[in-house]
Design a protein around this nucleic acid. Structure first.
Lengths: 347, 347
DNA sequence: GGACGTGGGAGACAGATGAATAACAGGTCA
DNA sequence: TGACCTGTTATTCATCTGTCTCCCACGTCC
C-alpha cells in the first residue's frame, strides 16, 4: 500500500500537474482554485501510488510536527502509566497527532529532567505531557513552560503549568459513604504514612463524611503504615485484633487492602460478613482477584491522559489558553467500582 | 538553557562564520578542515546561545530521523508492556534514538494494523519494534518488512521479520527442576487451555524434566483451565482435593497460582509446608504480595525490549543484517525468582 | 482595453548536510 | 619574477520534501 520513496513530485508527474497543485488539492486549501477534474486526477494518482505526505518535510515547513512529547516517571513500575499512555495515545491519534515517549526517573536531577525536555524541544514537539505516577506537588523543569504543556497527576508548585489530577477527596468520600449506606457506623481507616496530598485528602474526606453522617470519629480507628501489602497487614492486625474493632474498613489503596484481607483471614474474620472493606486505586490485578473481589475507587488515569492531550492540542491549535487554567488544577472524578467486599454489619 | 528559535544561523552569526562551518564543527565531520581557533569560537557561541540542532531539519536532509516506531498491542492491560517499553526506551536513548508509540488492538483488522505501520512510515521512522503481549505466531503487516523491524514476544509466520521471544521451555524446566531439587517426586501442573506456544512448551518441559529425573508422569496431575485466577482456583481444587494429591504444583502463571493459593487455604493446606508452588511470569504485584511470596519464573520483557532496539539500531546503522536472523527467533532466558513458596515435602 | 475571475505554476522557504570550490599563504620551478 | 602547485581554511551551492505566497496566462465582460 504505502510505498516509501513516493513523494509529492511523483504524484504531480502522474497527474500531469505541478507539485503546488497536488499540495493544494490534497490539503484542501481554501484559497486555492483548482478545477474539479484536476482534483480528481490528483486524488486518483495519489491513491494509486499510495502516496502519504512526508511528515518530516511538512513539519519543517509548517513548524508543526504533529508530535506530542510524553514524559513519564517510572513507566514500568506501576500499571497506572499504561492507562495514562493509552488515554493519551488514543486521544492524540484521533486528532492526527502522535506521541513520543521518554522515560524519566523520579530520582533524576533537575538537570536530567531539563535535558529530557530539551530532547523533546529539539524534536520540535508541539506540546508536552508530563506524567508522574502518584499525585504530588513538584517543581517542573524550567524549560517546560516554553511550549504548551500539561502535568498529569501532579501539581506545579509555581502554578505556571496547568495540570489535571484525580478527585482524591470525592473518591474517598464515596468510598466511606458506601460503607455508611451499607449500615456501618463503626468504620476504620488504614492510611498511608507518606506526606503526599492523597494521604491528607483521603483522611480529611474520611472525617468529614463521618461527621456529615453524624458519626463520631475515633482516633484509634485510623492506623497508618507504609502503603504496601505488608503495611496493610500490620495496620489491619492492630485495627481488627481488638474487641472494639470496626465493622468496616476504608483502605488507603488496594495493596494495603490485600494485606488487610490476610489479616482478617488470620483473625478468623470473614469478608464481608464480619468485616467490610473498600479500597482505592482499582488495581485490577488485585481488586478483581482478591476473594471476595474488592470494592474500590478507580483513579481516572485513562481520562487524565485523554484530558491532557485534548487540552494540549486545543492550546496548540489556538483554541484554548492553557495559561488561564494554570492556576487551578483540573480535577477529575474517581468513580466507585462495586464488587463484593461490602455487606451490612452483623447485628 | 535550550531556547527555541535559536538555529544554526544564529550560531554562525555569533561566531562570525558560515552555517556550513558550524555544522562541520559541531558534527565533528572528518573531512572538514577547520582551524582550532575557529572551532573554539563556534563551540563557545553554540554553548552560549543554548543551541540544539533541529532534529526535524536534520532528518529531512540526512534521511534519518533517529526515531524508532514502537507498536504495542494492548498497552494498558498488562504490566508487561511497561517493561518492554522501558527496556526499549533506555536502549534507544543510550544510542541517541527516540521512541514513537502507537497502541494497536489485538482485535484490529489487518488493514488497521497496516495503517498503523504506514503512519510510522510517513513519520520516517528508521525502524519498527512490534510488540505483542503474549507469545504467539502471527502474520505481520506486509509493509512492516519495508524497513528494519523486530517482533517482540511473537513469531512471524512467514519468517521474514526477525523476532525475540522468551525461553518458555527453559523457564518451565527450571521451575520444575527446583521442585525436584527440593525433594518432591509427586508434582502436579496447572496449565492453560489456550492454544498458544507457552501452553505446549511449558507442558512439554514439565514432562521432560520429570522424565530426566526418572519420575513418572501422571496424566491426572495436569489440570487445565482458563489462565486467570478463577481458573487456577478450580484446577487446584481438582488437583489438591484428593488423597492422592501432589506435594508440589507448577502453575502456568502467577494469576493461576493466586487462585491455587486460595484453593489450598480452603482445603486447609499450608504453603509451603503441605504443598509447594511455583509460578510463571513474575507479576510482581502478585508474586511479591501473596503470602507466602511466590517463587516464579520471570519473563525477560525488559531484556527483549532492549535486545530488539539494539539489533534494530545495528541494522539501521548497517552493522548487522536482520534478514539473517529472521529465520530463527532469538530466545532469551527466563530466570527463576526464588521466594518463599517452596519447601521440602513432608514425610 | 482595463478590470476581473478562474485555473494553475514558479520560486522562496523551513533548518540542516555534503560535495565542490574559492581564497590565500607559502613554496617550487623555469 | 611570474606561472604553477599545494595545503589549509572556510564558503558557496545544491539538496531533502513539502508548503505557501505571489504571479502569470487566458477568457470574458462592460
Amino acid at each position: 500500500m504505502n510505498n516509501r520513496s513516493v513523494g509529492i513530485k511523483d504524484v504531480a508527474a502522474a497527474a500531469g500537474v505541478s507539485v503546488t497543485t497536488v499540495s493544494h488539492v490534497l490539503n484542501d486549501v481554501a484559497y486555492a482554485r483548482v478545477g474539479v477534474e484536476t482534483r480528481e486526477r490528483v486524488h486518483e494518482a495519489a491513491q494509486r501510488l499510495g502516496y502519504g505526505p512526508n511528515r518530516v518535510a511538512r513539519a519543517l515547513r509548517t513548524q508543526r510536527s504533529g508530535m506530542i512529547g510524553f514524559i513519564s516517571e517510572e513507566i514500568a513500575t506501576t500499571p497506572h502509566a499504561g492507562r495514562i499512555i493509552l488515554g493519551a495515545e488514543e486521544a492524540a491519534r484521533a486528532r492526527g497527532y502522535n506521541l513520543m515517549i521518554i522515560n524519566s526517573t523520579s530520582t533524576g536531577t533537575d538537570d536530567s529532567r531539563e535535558s529530557d525536555v530539551a530532547d523533546l524541544l529539539d524534536r520540535q514537539v508541539d506540546g508536552i505531557l508530563y506524567a508522574t505516577m502518584y499525585h504530588r506537588k513538584l517543581a517542573v523543569p524550567k524549560n517546560l513552560a516554553t511550549l504548551p504543556s500539561v502535568l498529569v497527576d501532579s501539581e506545579d508548585i509555581s502554578h505556571t503549568v496547568s495540570c489535571v489530577i484525580p478527585d482524591e477527596f470525592g473518591g474517598a468520600r464515596s468510598a466511606v459513604q458506601t460503607l455508611i449506606d451499607a449500615g456501618h457506623s463503626r468504620i476504620g481507616m488504614i492510611n498511608n504514612t507518606d506526606d503526599v496530598p492523597a494521604t491528607h485528602a483521603r483522611l480529611q474526606a474520611f472525617r468529614e463524611t463521618l461527621a456529615a453522617a453524624g458519626l463520631p470519629f475515633h482516633e484509634d480507628l485510623v492506623q497508618s503504615e507504609h502503603s504496601e501489602v505488608p503495611g496493610g497487614y500490620e495496620a489491619a492486625l492492630r485495627l481488627l485484633g481488638t474487641d472494639s474493632r470496626p465493622t468496616a474498613v476504608f483502605c488507603y489503596n488496594d495493596r494495603m487492602a490485600m494485606g488487610a484481607y490476610r489479616a482478617a483471614a488470620e483473625l478468623g474474620l470473614r469478608i464481608p460478613q464480619d468485616v467490610s472493606f473498600v479500597g482505592f486505586d482499582n488495581q485490577q490485578l488485585i481488586a478483581e482477584n482478591l476473594y471476595p473481589a474488592l470494592t474500590t475507587v478507580a483513579l481516572p488515569h485513562y481520562e487524565m491522559g485523554a484530558w491532557a492531550i485534548e487540552n494540549l492540542i486545543d492550546a496548540i491549535e489556538g483554541k484554548t489558553d492553557l495559561a488561564l487554567m494554570a492556576h487551578h488544577p483540573t480535577i477529575l472524578d474517581c468513580p466507585l467500582v462495586r464488587r463484593d467486599s461490602i455487606a451490612a454489619p452483623r447485628q
